[in-house]
Each structure stands twice: as C-alpha cells, then as structure tokens.
C-alpha cells in the first residue's frame, strides 16, 4: 500500500515570530445533515470521541474531535489511520438518515503555529478580532486568510491549528511565514 503524504511533507519554519509546521496527514470527515437529529448526533459523537460542540465551537481531545462548521455541517477529526473505519461506521449508522458523510482528509492541509505572537500572525491575515477577550477557549472560526478560505481554533492561548484546502497549502505556508517575518511584531495584544 502507498503511504499517505501531506501537502508539503511536514515542512516547518522557526525563523520568524512563531513556529510554523505543516502537520498531518490528519483524518477529516465532513458530516452534513440535521444537527437536531438525535441519531446523527449520536453517530457524530461516536466518530469524533467528544461531545457535540456548540455553534461556532469545536471540541477536541488528543488526535480527535468535532468542529461546528455550519448549521448543517460538522467536521469529524481523527487519526488518519482511523478514517476508513469511522467512515464505514458513520455510513452504517446513518443509512436511514438524510445525511452526507465524506472523507476529506486528502483534500486538506493542516498547519500549527506556536508562539507568543500566534494571535498577531492570525490577526494580520484574517478579518477576525483576535483579542483574548474575543477569541478564546474552544472557539472555532471559518474565515479567510488573505485570499484563501481557512478554518482554525486555538488549542491553547499561544498556538493555533489552521485547516485549508490542500491545493493552497504552499500559499498558506508562505502567507504565515510572511506574517511572522522577524521584526514585524505589532504587539497589539501584548
């Protein structure tokens, strides 16, 4: 069997304000359907291994989790090796529901940024108020980073995990590197 390869082969950079690393591949399943349907929620919770997140949030634990994507969409996150099993399980459980389950693992690229300036790097690229009073905890945000769609959350106060389309992985890496250029500190949140 061929080995899965992430978009940028786990490239990393620590020359700037934050450490940027392309991680993965990570297992990701898009689940669309009626989020008030008990059978669907039960299947999602089993697949994601965490409770259903509230609107605009994500629940994560280790390598797995669930992110709230829209009023009818969840993102199930798991280890890449587990995707096929979770997919099969979800499809079986939701066979009688009006729902869509798709493996999007290979369509995505994931980046981690870590460092005291993580909020600032994001604030330079996305139209989001990154003040600790405004973006905190388990909040999950779908937005744009410069010219491409992206989603992210902050596992802790000084790091963020960013998900984008695989086709724009190089753009995202270059973007983060530029926003984290040494000497470009704004210290807006300091």
């Amino acid at each position: 069997m061929s080995d899965p390869v992430s978009a940028l082969k786990n490239i990393s950079d620590d020359t700037g304000l934050v450490t940027i690393s392309e991680i993965g591949p990570i297992g990701m399943i898009t689940l669309r359907g009626d989020l008030s349907d008990k059978a669907l929620v039960k299947a999602a919770v089993a697949a994601g291994g965490v409770n259903l997140p509230e609107q605009g949030h994500c629940n994560t634990q280790g390598t797995q989790g669930i992110a709230w994507m829209s009023p009818d969409e969840l993102l199930i996150i798991c280890a890449y090796a587990d995707v096929q099993d979770r997919l099969a399980d979800l499809r079986e459980k939701l066979a009688g529901s009006h729902a869509l389950v798709v493996n999007v693992s290979d369509a995505r690229a994931v980046f981690d940024i870590k460092g005291d300036h993580a909020r600032e790097v994001i604030a330079k690229l996305a139209p989001v108020d990154m003040h600790p009073d405004q973006f905190s905890g388990t909040m999950f945000r779908r937005t744009r980073f410069a010219q491409v769609p992206a989603a992210y959350w902050m596992p802790d106060g000084t790091s963020a995990r960013i998900v984008c389309f695989r086709s724009v992985a190089q753009y995202m890496f270059d973007l983060l590197k530029t926003a984290a250029m040494p000497g470009s500190e704004v210290r807006h949140y300091a």
């Binding site: 605009g56 139209p127 989001v128 744009r144």
Partner: peptide, 12 residues
Amino acid sequence: PNCGVTAEETEF
C-alpha cells in the same frame, strides 16, 4: 444570522 459571526464585508 446562520452562524452568529460578525465580520467585515470581505468575509462575505
């Protein structure tokens, strides 16, 4: 009103 986000227009 669908996801509760308030942002400037370039996200829309």
